Amino acid sequence: MLSRITILLEMIKFSHTLFALPFALIGMLTAARGLPGFWTIFWIVMAMVGARTMGMTLNRILDAEIDRRNPRTAERHIPAGVVSRREAWLLVAASFVLFEVAAWALNPLAFKLSFVAVGFLVLYPFMKRFSVAAHIVLGLTLAMAPIGATIAVAGEITLYSLLLGGFVLLWSAAFDIIYATQDIEFDRSQKLFSIPAWLGQRRALQVAALFHGVAFALLLLSSMLLEYLGGIYLAGVGVVGVMLVYEHLLAWRAKDPADIDRAFFTVNSYISIVIFVATCLDAIFFW
Rank of each mutant, 00 (worst) to 15 (best):
E227W: 11
A24K: 08
L29Q: 01
E75T: 14
R72P: 04
V45H: 14
R203T: 10
R69G: 05
S114C: 02
F126E: 08
L205S: 06
S15A: 09
A103E: 03
S15V: 10
L226G: 10
W89I: 13
S161L: 01
S95E: 14
V153I: 02
E100V: 06
F111K: 03
R85P: 07
T181Q: 10
V214H: 01
S269F: 05
H248L: 09
E75N: 12
G238L: 11
V132Y: 08
A74T: 11
I151C: 03
A204S: 13
L8K: 11
I275K: 02
I284K: 02
L113I: 09
S222M: 09
P125G: 14
L21D: 02
I178A: 12
A278T: 09
G165Q: 01
L163K: 02
V122F: 03
L9G: 11
L164P: 01
D187E: 03
T6N: 11
Q182T: 05
L2T: 13
Y179K: 15
V101D: 06
V101L: 12
T57C: 01
L9Q: 10
R203K: 13
L109P: 06
V242H: 06
W43Y: 15
H16F: 08
L281R: 06
A32I: 01
A235C: 07
L140S: 07
L2S: 11
F120W: 01
V153N: 09
V277C: 07
G139K: 00
K128Y: 13
A173D: 12
I273Y: 03
A278Y: 09
A251D: 08
F19W: 08
S194T: 11
Q206P: 04
D261K: 14
L192M: 14
